[in-house]
């Protein structure tokens, strides 16, 4: 028990460093702001007219929401994905530039170091997700205080899982350049194949779905965990679920533990 307080202090120290770096990195902040602006202000507004009702009884988006509202939670998830997975750059940075050794010879156990780092990355990613919430008014999403609290808690859990995933990726990639390419080839496909930018109509049966989208795409979307992560956040923010929300929460929970353990295996080697 006597060694517990120093470890907490250490975790706080590692977390604090990540926060300082994240808040001082103007590029990262800028990315965290420009992404939602591009997706919501430009893509969202650009496509909104194509999804709006023109004739009563006939509609392209058979959901009780406007396209902007539909897109809004997905943009939050996108922002979180980017920040979380790009967080791995910080891990590579530490490894390449020697700071990792300073941490590894410290009396802190490895799991505590990783926990501190991941908590820091998850906090930064949650912050970036929360920035998007400010645009809720723009997307015509009305939020109550409990909804915001719930959303932030869920965003943190999602960030945590994705940050661990990023650390796992960092263990596989050796260079910064490689990671930049790698992260884009991971993030964007996951995002697009997740029913984030186009809706799968929940009122349609599977056979009807296959009529509008090719089978392979639907398979991809059903197999993609981000689909359920986005869906769970939609449930919180606009009260709309295509799937039972507990699938999303469950997957995020499993991801938090599973990816953390996996990251622990690859961290510091």
């Amino acid at each position: 028990m006597s060694s517990f307080l120093p470890i907490l202090r250490g975790i706080h120290g590692v977390w604090l460093r990540e926060i300082m770096r994240a808040t001082r990195d103007k590029g990262q902040l800028l990315g965290g702001v420009s992404r939602p602006l591009i997706w919501l202000l430009i893509l969202g507004v650009g496509l909104n007219p194509y999804f709006r009702g023109e004739v009563f009884g006939e509609v392209r988006l058979v959901l009780p929401y406007s396209y902007l509202q539909f897109l809004f939670p997905a943009v939050i998830v996108l922002n979180i994905m980017y920040t979380s997975i790009q967080f791995a750059v910080s891990v590579i940075w530490d490894r390449e530039f020697g700071f990792l050794r300073e941490i590894l010879v410290s009396p802190m156990p490895r799991w505590a170091v990783l926990l501190g780092k991941v908590l820091g990355g998850a906090t930064a990613a949650t912050g970036h997700g929360t920035l998007v919430l400010i645009l809720a008014r723009f997307a015509d999403v009305t939020l109550t205080a409990p909804q915001v609290a719930q959303a932030i808690a869920y965003m943190f859990a999602l960030s945590f899982a994705l940050t661990c995933f990023g650390v796992v990726l960092a263990g596989k990639v050796r260079s910064f350049e490689g990671f930049g390419v790698f992260s884009n080839t991971v993030i964007l496909p996951l995002y697009f194949a997740s029913s984030s930018v186009f809706p799968l109509d929940p009122s349609l049966t599977r056979t009807q779905l296959v009529a509008s989208y090719p089978e392979w795409l639907i398979m991809l979307i059903y197999a993609n965990p981000i689909t359920y992560a986005v869906d769970a956040l939609r449930g919180i923010l606009i009260n709309f679920n295509q799937f039972p929300p507990h699938i999303g929460f469950g997957l995020v929970g499993i991801g938090m533990i599973g990816f953390f353990l996996w990251a622990l295996r690859s961290f510091g080697r």
Partner: peptide, 20 residues
């Protein structure tokens, strides 16, 4: 093995925290 984006004090503060 310093974090060169932090100040001298912050580097030391980090070390101190990590050493409990």
């Amino acid at each position: 093995s310093l974090d060169d984006r932090l100040s001298a004090e912050e580097n030391l503060d980090f070390h101190g925290r990590v050493y409990g």
